[in-house]
């Protein structure tokens, strides 16, 4: 049985390579059918904002990539409710909101955690 992995993505989408790297880990794991979860936290929740325009900053379209998570077999996608609330965001349909104790329990459920 493969070890399960939780990836915590907590950087804004266009600020550097972290958001992209977190997603690449998740997609690669999904392609190999590993049990993978993805949690957006802190500025990472900005990745979930709809209708972003990657071309305006000459980047690859991370938001479009995120829509493919389901096809890569990644069904466990969460967003930190606290991070969203302090940023005036509501939870999009693509990520289930979790409160702080919920995140503690989520981390407990996985064998390994990577925070980027």
């Amino acid at each position: 049985m493969a070890k399960s992995l939780l990836v915590i993505s907590r950087q804004a989408p266009w600020s550097g390579p972290s958001a992209r790297e977190a997603l690449d880990i998740v997609l690669a794991g999904g392609a190999f059918d590993l049990p993978i979860g993805l949690l957006f936290m802190d500025d990472g929740v900005f990745q979930l904002t709809p209708h972003q325009d990657a071309k305006a900053v000459q980047q690859k379209d991370l938001s479009a990539n995120l829509q493919a998570l389901g096809l890569f077999g990644i069904d466990e996608v969460f967003a930190c409710a606290h991070s969203q609330a302090v940023r005036g965001l509501t939870s999009p349909a693509s990520a289930a909101p979790l409160d702080n104790p919920g995140i503690t329990r989520l981390i407990d459920r996985y064998d390994q955690v990577i925070t980027l």
Binding site: L27, G30, D33, D61, A64, N65, Q67, A68, L71, G73
Partner: peptide
Amino acid sequence: AEFQLSPATRP
């Protein structure tokens, strides 16, 4: 066009 990436085999 939809996802801006090439799928691996499974997807």
